[in-house]
Amino acid sequence: MPTRKHPRPSTAREAGDRLKLHRHDLRDYQVITLRPGTRARFSTNHHHETWHVLSDPHGALLLGRLLWGLSYQRRPGTLVVIDRRFIDPNPFDAEPGDPVALVPADLTHLPARTARHLARRCAAPGPPSGTVRWHTWGLDQAVRERRAWLADQSWHPPGDDYRRADVAQLGGLVRVQATSSLLRSWAVSVVVMADYAYDGMSYTGLAGSDGNLCRAEGEVQTFTDYRRRVSVAKVSREEVLATAPPSTSPADLRPLIWDQNDTVRSRRDDHRRGAGRSGPSRRRGISPG
C-alpha cells in the first residue's frame, strides 16, 4: 500500500522563489495577479508629492519577488496587478488604497484608458486563464551582493536605465513603471530595506539617481505593525466621521484622524493591560509568578 504523502504547504502563502500566481489573458495583455489565500496585504497613499506603496516586511519581500520576476518577462503586454482583494485602507487615515500595477516599461505600454479598464476589473477578477510559476533566480545573490556593498563598499552595482521610469496614479491604479534593469534594482532595494528599519519602520525610494532621466516619485514603506495600524486607522476614521460636519473636506479630516489614532491606540493598550490585571490568577487571589 503506498504511503500517504503529507500535503504541501500552500505556495499562495509563501514569498520565495517559484511563487504560484494567476494569469489572466485580456486582449493584448497578460495580467499576473496574486492567488486567493495570499497572506500579504498592501495599501497606497499620496503624501509630500510622492506615491507610497505600504505593507509589512512580508509584503515587501513578496513585492521584491514580483518586481524581480517581472524584469525577466519576455511576452509583450505583461504586467503584474495587486488587485483590490489585497489592498487595505491606508494605515494613517484609512482612506481607500488603490490597486498597484507593476509595469515593465520596455515591454508593456499601459495607457490611461487600459488602466481604467483594469481598475474596474480589479474589484473582482474573474476566473484565471491559467497558473504560472514566478521564477526569481538570482535575486538572493543580488541581495547578498547589495548587502556586501552597503557594508564595506566592496561591490559596485551596475548602472541602471532610468528611462521611462515613473510612479503615478493612472486611471485608478498606482502604476509603478521602470525598465528591466531598474525593476531589478528596485527589487533588491525593497528586500534589503528591512535591514535598516528604525522603530519598526523602513522605506526605500522608487526613483533614479538622475533627475533628468527619471520622473519616478515613489516609495515603498513598511511597518512591522502594519496590520495594527490599519485597524486603528479604520476605527479612528469611523469615530471622527461620526462627529465631523458632513462638509468637512478630506484635507481637514486627515489631521483629525491622525490625532484620533493616538487615542484609539492608548485605549486599546489600556484595555490590554486591564485584561492582564484581571486574569484568572488575580480573580482566584493568586499573585502572578
Rank of each mutant, 00 (worst) to 15 (best):
S209W: 10
G218L: 10
A216M: 07
W186H: 13
G205A: 13
L213I: 11
E217K: 15
Y203Q: 14
C214V: 02
A194G: 11
S236A: 15
K234W: 00
R229S: 04
K234G: 00
M201S: 03
T243Y: 03
Y198M: 09
G205K: 11
E239P: 03
T204D: 13
R237T: 02
R237I: 02
S189P: 01
S189T: 09
S189D: 15
C214K: 02
D225N: 14
C214H: 04
T222K: 00
S189C: 14
G205M: 09
V220H: 08
A207Y: 08
V190R: 05
A207G: 10
L213R: 15
L213F: 10
L213A: 12
V191C: 06
A216W: 06
S231Y: 02
M193L: 13
A233F: 07
A197C: 09
R228S: 06
F223E: 01
S185P: 00
E217Y: 10
A207F: 08
V230T: 08
R215M: 05
G200T: 03
D199N: 06
V191K: 01
Y226F: 14
Y196M: 13
C214M: 03
V230I: 09
R237D: 02
E238R: 15
V220D: 09
Y203P: 00
T222E: 09
S189R: 15
E238G: 12
R184V: 00
L206K: 11
E217L: 14
Q221T: 11
R227A: 10
S231A: 11
E219Q: 15
C214P: 01
T222L: 12
V190H: 06
R229V: 04
G200W: 02
A233Q: 05
V192G: 08
D199T: 00
S209E: 15
G218Q: 08
A207W: 05
R229E: 06
V230Y: 03
L213P: 00
E238S: 15
E217D: 12
R229Q: 13
E239N: 12
S236N: 04
N212H: 08
G205P: 00
T204E: 14
S231R: 09
R215A: 14
V235A: 07
V191E: 12
Y226M: 04
